[in-house]
């Protein structure tokens, strides 16, 4: 399991500083670049002093909320991805595995199809409910009975439920033009022009999720040794699982509801963070969150700057930014099974 170099369990302070610096840098460029570029000095001035200029208005009213949303979304998805991979001990696991994304997407499609209700507030509420209901369902079904191999069963049930809901969503989209119009824009994850009032309401959920995730990371270390060993070491296996899944739902549900399904991030961030943190979940979970936040902001800024007209959604750019990262990791590192 832990076949890396022996120092890998302890993370160096220098690396943590570098990670924080990278995050600060991506926040700064996310604020500074866009359809109009603003000098860094002016960005800092607009943030910390009361300046009255066009640029300051752009930053405080447009880019700051967007950057904060990106920061929160990246942090949440990165942490949730690390928890998910730790719990299922499956390197393919991403936060969508328990059907969170599929449930949210299906709820939004069903709302538009059945009740002809469209609108960002209704969509956010529906997505949140859909994510919660589906995750609970997968959880209840997957944890019945005794399992000898961690959450492998939960992963299979989650994938199956996701297959079912994705198929139903495609059926709704293909049967109804209005649903297609709604889903075309909702299904591509984006942090632009999202409902800011609701974002404020959802923040407490995210904060609770982050707290639970951090608490869960401690027990997750022993859980990595296998359920029996963990139990003999005094870890409450079932409680840890329940808390972990609650944390994942609290982290992913609000983000998916607000931004739509952002694929791939929850997969890349933990793999990237693992290069330096090794398998110590106490470091891996928060570092995956920081890496995720930096990646989202970087991808979002690139999506604003690269195209000559319009913007590229963060979901599309993330694949282009994240995939080479994952490729480089798999090529140059001795792979360790989870």
């Amino acid at each position: 399991m832990l076949t890396g170099h022996p120092r890998s369990a302890r993370i160096s302070g220098a690396f943590l500083l570098a990670l924080l610096a990278a995050l600060a840098f991506s926040v700064l460029i996310s604020l500074a670049f866009g359809s109009r570029s603003i000098p860094f000095a002016e960005v800092v001035a607009a943030l910390f002093r009361d300046v009255d200029s066009d640029n300051a208005t752009v930053i405080t009213s447009q880019r700051l909320p967007r950057t904060l949303l990106g920061l929160g979304a990246g942090l949440a998805l990165g942490m949730a991805g690390a928890l998910m991979q730790g719990h299922t001990r499956n390197p393919l696991a991403d936060p969508g595995l328990f059907g969170v994304n599929a449930g949210a997407t299906f709820a939004v499609a069903a709302l538009s199809f059945g009740l002809s209700v469209t609108g960002s507030a209704a969509n956010v509420v529906a997505a949140l409910l859909g994510a919660a209901v589906v995750t609970t369902l997968v959880f209840v079904l997957g944890l019945r009975g005794q399992h000898t191999n961690g959450l492998a069963m939960l992963a299979i049930i989650g994938t199956t439920v996701a297959v079912l809901l994705t198929s139903l969503t495609s059926a709704l989209i293909l049967l109804d033009r209005q649903t297609l119009e709604v889903m075309r824009f909702w299904e591509v994850g984006s942090i632009a022009n999202r409902n800011q009032d609701l974002a404020l309401w959802l923040t407490p959920l995210l904060v609770l999720g982050v707290a639970l995730a951090m608490a869960n990371a401690f027990s997750l270390n022993t859980l990595g040794l296998g359920d029996e060993v963990a139990q003999s070491l005094g870890t409450r296996v079932r409680t840890t699982r329940v808390v972990g899944i609650l944390a994942i739902t609290l982290l992913v549900g609000p983000v998916t509801a607000l931004c739509g399904p952002i694929a791939f991030l929850g997969l890349v961030a933990p793999h990237a963070a693992r290069v330096v943190t090794g398998h110590d979940q106490r470091w891996l979970v928060p570092c995956a969150g920081l890496v995720g936040a930096a990646l989202v902001l970087l991808a979002d800024t690139l999506g604003r700057v690269l195209p000559e007209t319009g913007e590229l959604q963060v979901g599309i750019v993330l694949a282009l930014v994240g995939a080479p990262v994952l490729l480089a990791i798999t090529r140059h590192r001795r792979l360790v099974s989870l």
Binding site: L141, G145, T148, N149, T160, L164, S170, L174
Partner: peptide
Amino acid sequence: GDLPVGVPTGIIGAIFLLNLLLRTTRRTR
């Protein structure tokens, strides 16, 4: 509705597999 074949495949297949999973939940590999 002229659905592509992948849609009912997903729906039928997932329901069938869920049914199997829940019945054999005690013997998983």
